[in-house]
């Protein structure tokens, strides 16, 4: 079995664990945490898709990476895919922003009803 399959499998399992948390938990704080677990799983999945065993991180810091030193072309077969890594960098930052926003909503909701149980917030306005 390939090591990449372990990464991808773990990532998808994390997504399932997180979705399970969102669907089954009643505590809003735990639902926010579960969404964060989904996000971590998706990030790991993207990194896993771009990963190829035996290749190095996409940082060209050795002359041995070059295919042609004069033309400055790099032998891409030595490096893992840099695109998913850039996407995940973006996703982590956006995830931080959404988590902060969700947590401040949780603070507000708790201040209103003194409870974190999602069933107490059934009405559209409170």
């Amino acid at each position: 079995m390939d090591i990449t399959m372990v990464y991808i499998g773990t990532a998808l399992a994390l997504v399932l664990v997180g979705l399970g948390g969102v669907l089954l938990k009643r505590n809003i704080l735990k639902m926010v945490l579960a969404l964060d677990i989904v996000e971590t799983g998706v990030n790991l999945l993207l990194i896993g898709i771009g990963y190829t065993p035996g290749r190095e991180a996409p940082i060209v810091d050795k002359t041995s990476f070059f295919a042609d030193r004069a033309k400055e072309t790099v032998n891409a077969a030595n490096l893992v895919d840099p695109v998913p890594q850039a996407l995940v960098l973006t996703a982590i930052v956006i995830g931080l922003g959404t988590t902060a926003l969700m947590l401040s909503y949780v603070i507000r909701l708790y201040a209103q009803k003194k409870t974190l149980d999602i069933r107490e917030f059934g009405r559209l306005k409170w």
Partner: peptide
């Protein structure tokens, strides 16, 4: 999805960035 997503190798765009990124 697991076997499909764990194929080795880079995408075409990733290969371009890796090859010509320094230039």
């Amino acid at each position: 999805l697991v076997p499909m997503a764990s194929k080795p190798g880079n995408g075409a765009v990733g290969d371009y960035y890796a090859t010509h990124g320094i230039a």
